[in-house]
């Protein structure tokens, strides 16, 4: 095969749902982010073989779309785990190897190894009903990895977990993914997952790829408002150029400030919430902006929802970049190998 190469090459379309193209090197972790309905789950289901798709998705040279789900060698960790409720954690993990013809004792030993690796070896005999959310997620990841997939699909693996549990699992997941030599596709709507775990970020928006880049590129130069919000940035469009700046760089005042009129907005405070040691304001302007102020300033300015304020930012605190995806600075959308 002339196009044979290691890693994942996706050029697929699920009609009416999502159109996606990106490449990933072996060992790479690709984060797929985007708002609800952007097509993240459709992409995952198409790659797993659970939804029909056109185009191709080559994994180490072979087109996945030609194969039925069970022959794809793709591990899928479902949103909500979907552990078999009538089987113990051990039998859940051993299910994949056994379905592939591994003798029972060997499959059990393998399952035990994976449960141990994910730190839930002591829960082997429990049914899913008696596992906590975090434990069930670990078992689900062990179940997917026990089939030695060349592509691991994680559909919102940390969603619905207690914040502290999610934090611990994120760190561990990072460790497992670093030692995993297949490609990982991580669907998430938490920026931190994309930033801490991924080598490449694919931003989906309304069924299209809006941006592909390294986490640093995407977080510093977000092209969609959704991602900008996820990474806690403001993005404003100036013609063919995007301007991004942090909420901390925003100056909030009651009087009209001096400076560039293009970096000055007026609007009403829509929401006030604590954010670290600051107070974060959401201001309904054109476009909506977020600004962080000190609690003292918030009290002094009387910043409550409904309050009319002026926002401004210094020209030296903004980053300017091209708005279109084909900008030369970006280079080819390929993840580095880890």
């Amino acid at each position: 095969m002339s196009g044979t190469r290691a890693g994942l090459e996706v050029r697929l379309e699920v009609p009416g749902r999502v159109q996606a193209s990106f490449d990933a090197a072996p060992g790479a972790v690709v984060a797929v982010i985007g708002p609800n309905g952007a097509g993240k789950s459709s992409l995952v289901r198409a790659l797993a073989g659970l939804a029909p798709a056109s185009g191709h998705a080559r994994l180490d040279g072979a087109d996945l779309l030609d194969l039925p789900a069970r022959e794809r060698g793709v591990g899928l960790v479902f949103q909500g785990q979907l552990l078999f409720p009538h089987l113990t954690a051990l039998d859940n993990v051993a299910f994949g190897p056994r379905a592939r013809g591994v003798p029972r004792s060997e499959a059990d030993a393998e399952a035990r190894t994976w449960l141990d690796r994910l730190g839930v070896g002591d829960l082997a005999d429990r049914r899913p009903r008696r596992l906590s959310g975090g434990q069930a997620q670990r078992v689900a990841i062990a179940r997917a990895l026990a089939t030695h997939p060349r592509l691991l699909l994680l559909d919102e693996p940390l969603t619905g977990l207690d914040v502290r549990v999610a934090m611990a699992l994120r760190i561990e997941l990072g460790r497992h993914l670093a030692s995993y030599d297949g490609v990982t596709l991580l669907v998430t709507h938490h920026a931190i997952d994309a930033l801490t775990l991924a080598d490449l970020v694919v931003v989906l928006d309304r069924g299209r790829v809006a941006q592909v880049g390294t986490p640093a590129e995407v977080s510093q130069r977000p092209r969609t408002e959704h991602v900008a919000r996820l990474v806690g940035l403001n993005v404003v469009r100036h013609g063919e150029e995007l301007v991004s700046f942090t909420p901390r760089a925003v100056n909030v005042s009651l009087e009209q400030p001096v400076g560039s009129p293009r970096l000055r907005w007026r609007g009403a405070v829509a929401d006030v919430s604590p954010h670290g040691d600051a107070v974060r304001l959401l201001v309904t302007a054109d476009p909506d902006l977020i600004a962080d102020v000190t609690p003292a300033a918030a009290t002094e300015l009387g910043l409550a929802p409904g309050r009319e304020v002026w926002l401004s930012v210094k020209a030296t605190s903004v980053r300017r970049y091209a708005a279109s995806a084909g900008a030369p600075a970006d280079g080819p959308p390929t993840a580095p190998s880890t």
Binding site: L50, R70, L76, F84, F95, G96, A144
Partner: peptide, 21 residues
């Protein structure tokens, strides 16, 4: 839930294995 059947398929099970197990 037929999603359990889907989960079994991604783990490499044939439909017969999925039916049985």
């Amino acid at each position: 839930d037929p999603e359990y059947d889907a989960a079994a398929a991604t783990l490499g099970a044939t439909r017969w294995t999925t039916f049985r197990r």
